[in-house]
């Protein structure tokens, strides 16, 4: 008979090492904790304020108004905060040459990138699931239904995943301070665009409900998703190609700054 501990041990052994490491770092570090606490704190304040308001008003859409605010906040945290965190972490490891050490263990580019994306996705799910009870609480008030809230959470996770794939892949291109700035500006614009799409989708979702949104917006969504998927595919392929090459030798950077011809040849492809 297979014992649960054996199953857990087997799962633990099969886990992507990068995912495990990233999650440990996220929980130990302050950044993710701050996002979570700010999210939950704001939710509690919003819920409390709405509760007191509901006593003194007959407003029919009070639950809907509250959920709109919750969804907005959640999107900022999930579509902007977590991808930014994941991207910064990847770029730091790339710039400090730590990724090169990973190669020695037999971890290859796809496993490194996938591990980073998986860990970011898990953080997204964690934030969404911690905020979800507040969203579902809105259905007890007026103006928003359970399917809308559930669909909104799923959409948020999907947009969060898109953001995480984009930033992690983009961060693999970072090799110097200049490229970091370029990636940050480009990534920031892309995330702002993604956030605006996510907000618009949520707004339409809350107005129309999930069934009507799917019925009327499926073709529009398909057209919208095609360039996004294409961009992600390009970024992912670029990340795999970039990480296949051995990262620059720290000495080469030092030499390059003295004007020696190391920089253009730093890193070979394997």
């Amino acid at each position: 008979m297979i014992r649960p501990t054996h199953i857990l041990e087997r799962l633990d052994n099969r886990a992507n090492p990068v995912t495990v490491k990233e999650l440990r770092q996220a929980f130990r570090g302050g950044w993710f904790g701050v996002i979570l606490i700010v999210c939950l704190g704001t939710m509690i304040c919003l819920l409390a304020a709405t509760h007191f308001r509901s006593i003194s008003t007959d407003e029919q859409a009070i639950g809907r108004n509250l959920f709109t605010r919750i969804a907005m906040l959640l999107q900022v945290a999930v579509v902007f905060g977590v991808p930014l965190y994941a991207g910064v972490r990847m770029s730091i490891e790339k710039m400090t040459g730590q990724v090169a050490i990973y190669y020695m263990t037999g971890l290859f580019s796809a496993r490194i990138v996938n591990g980073k994306i998986k860990s970011a996705l898990l953080l997204v799910i964690l934030i969404v699931s911690s905020v979800a009870p507040f969203g579902f609480a809105c259905t007890l008030m007026r103006g928003v239904g359970l399917p809308t809230v559930a669909a909104s959470m799923v959409f948020t996770v999907c947009f969060g995943l898109i953001g995480c794939i984009g930033t992690v892949c983009l961060a693999t291109q970072v090799a110097s301070t200049l490229s970091a700035i370029v990636c940050l500006v480009f990534g920031g614009l892309c995330m702002a665009f993604l956030l605006s799409i996510a907000t618009a989708t949520q707004s339409v979702l809350i107005d129309m409900g999930p069934i009507d949104l799917l019925r009327h917006g499926a073709i529009a969504a398909l057209f919208l998703m095609m360039p996004i998927v294409f961009t992600l595919a390009v970024l992912y392929s670029g990340a795999l190609l970039r990480l296949r090459g051995v990262s620059p030798d720290p000495y080469d950077h030092a030499n390059a700054s003295r004007g020696l011809p190391y920089e253009s040849h730093a890193g070979t492809h394997r």
């Binding site: 052994n13 886990a15 090492p17 990068v18 495990v20 490491k21 440990r24 770092q25 996220a26 130990r28 570090g29 730091i92 490891e93 400090t96 040459g97 730590q98 090169a100 050490i101 990973y102 263990t105 037999g106 971890l107 720290p250 000495y251």
Partner: peptide
């Protein structure tokens, strides 16, 4: 390598555990 590990938010044990897993 001559550059030291730069992972900040990870304990010594977790760092070694990561490489052992890898």
């Amino acid at each position: 390598p001559d550059n030291l590990p730069t992972h900040r938010d990870i304990s010594v044990h977790e760092y070694l555990d990561f490489f052992a897993r890898a």
